[in-house]
C-alpha cells in the first residue's frame, strides 16, 4: 500500500523537475534584456551553429550511454578519430563521400573497442573508456608526429567543407539540420522505440532485463556503436567547421557532454536521462556561453560562469528533490 506523499514533497519535486526550464528561461530573458545583440537572428543562428550543434550531437550519444547505466570518457577519442580519418582522406585526394565514410568508420572502430570491452567483457564503462582516452591520446600524438594539426585550408577542399560546415538549407545551417535529424531519430529510438525500453531496463536493472529475455550484450553493443557514430558525425562537423583536424580537440566536448546529459536528467521527475533534457542542457550551456561573451565577460570568466551555472542547476534540482523525499 502506498503512503500519500506530503504535499510539500510533491511541490518540491515538481519544482526540481522544472528548475532547469526556469533557469533556462530566466537566463534567456536576462541576456535578451542586457545584451542588445543577443536576441538577433544572426546571433541565435551563431549560438546554434557554434555552441549547440556539435555539442548537441555528442551529448545525445552520451545520453544513450548514460541511460544504459554507463558513462563514456572516450567520446572525444571517437570524435577525433572521425576528424582524423576525414581530414587524412581528404588530403589523400579521396572523394568527399568516401572521406566522410572513412571518418565515420574510424569512429566506429573506437565504438567497436568499447563494444568488446564493455558489452562483451563487461568491464566498468568508466574505467574502460578512461583507458581508451589515454590510448587515444597516444595514438593521435603518434599519428600526427607529436600533435601537429592537419590543415585543410587548400582551396580544393573549400566546396566540400563549405557544404558541411557553412551552407544553408532554407536559411538553416547544415550542422543544425544534422542535429535536428539526429535528435529526432534519437528521440524516437530512445523514448518511443523498443531499443529505448531495453536500454532503459538495462540501465536501471541489468539482471531483471537479462531475465526478461533481453540480450544485454546486443543492446549494449548498439548503444556504444550509436554513441561512437554520433561522436564521429560531430567530428566531421567540427573538422568541416574549423577547416582542420586538431589532435585531441574532441576532449573539449567531453565535460560539456556529460554535463548536458546529467543536467538533462533534472528535467524529469524520475531523474532519467532523455534526449529532450539533454538538448535543453546543451542549449543552456550554449546560450550562457554566448550571452556571457556578449555582456563582456572574457573567455576565462565564461568558464567560471558556466561552472557556477551547472553547479547551481544541479544544487537546485538535487536539493529540492531531497527536500521532497524527507
Amino acid at each position: 500500500m502506498s503512503i500519500a506523499l506530503p504535499r510539500a514533497g510533491l511541490i518540491g519535486e515538481r519544482l526540481a523537475a522544472s528548475a532547469l526550464l526556469i533557469a533556462f528561461a530566466g537566463l534567456f530573458l536576462f541576456f535578451a534584456l542586457s545584451a542588445p545583440a543577443f536576441l538577433t537572428a544572426g546571433n541565435l543562428k551563431n549560438i546554434l551553429v557554434n555552441n549547440v550543434a556539435i555539442l548537441g550531437v555528442v551529448a545525445i550519444g552520451m545520453t544513450f550511454v548514460v541511460k544504459s547505466g554507463g558513462i563514456d570518457l572516450s567520446t572525444g577519442v571517437a570524435l577525433d578519430a572521425a576528424g582524423f580519418g576525414f581530414a587524412f582522406a581528404l588530403t589523400a585526394a579521396i572523394a568527399a563521400p568516401l572521406a566522410i565514410s572513412l571518418g565515420l568508420a574510424a569512429a566506429l572502430v573506437v565504438g567497436a573497442v568499447n563494444v568488446l570491452l564493455i558489452a562483451r567483457l563487461r568491464l566498468n564503462p568508466f574505467l574502460a573508456t578512461l583507458a581508451l582516452l589515454f590510448i587515444g591520446q597516444s595514438a593521435q600524438r603518434l599519428l600526427t608526429g607529436g600533435g601537429s594539426p592537419i590543415y585543410l585550408g587548400n582551396r580544393s577542399y573549400a566546396d566540400v567543407l563549405g557544404a558541411i560546415g557553412r551552407s544553408d538549407l532554407l536559411g538553416i545551417p547544415t550542422p543544425v539540420i544534422v542535429l535536428a535529424l539526429v535528435a529526432a531519430l534519437a528521440f524516437v529510438i530512445l523514448h518511443r522505440g523498443r531499443l529505448g525500453r531495453e536500454i532503459s531496463a538495462i540501465g536501471a536493472a541489468p539482471e531483471a532485463a537479462h531475465y526478461s529475455g533481453i540480450s544485454t550484450t546486443f543492446v549494449l553493443a548498439r548503444v556504444w556503436l550509436i554513441a561512437a557514430l554520433l561522436s564521429g558525425i560531430a567530428g566531421i562537423l567540427l573538422t568541416a567547421t574549423v577547416r582542420s583536424y586538431i589532435p585531441m580537440s574532441g576532449n573539449g566536448y567531453l565535460l560539456d557532454a556529460i554535463g548536458a546529459a546529467f543536467i538533462g536528467t533534472t528535467l524529469r521527475r524520475d531523474g532519467r536521462p532523455s534526449v529532450h533534457g539533454t538538448l535543453i542542457g546543451v542549449l543552456l550551456l550554449g546560450v550562457v556561453r554566448n550571452g556571457l561573451l556578449l555582456i563582456g565577460w572574457n573567455f576565462y570568466w565564461q568558464q567560471v560562469g558556466i561552472g557556477v551555472l551547472v553547479f547551481a542547476v544541479l544544487a537546485l534540482s538535487y536539493g529540492l528533490r531531497r527536500e521532497g523525499r524527507h
Binding site: 565535460l255 568558464q303 561552472g307 553547479f311
Partner: peptide, 8 residues
C-alpha cells in the same frame, strides 16, 4: 562542475 569553476 567545480573543476570548471576552479579552472576558470
Amino acid at each position: 562542475a567545480m573543476s570548471n569553476i576552479v579552472g576558470g
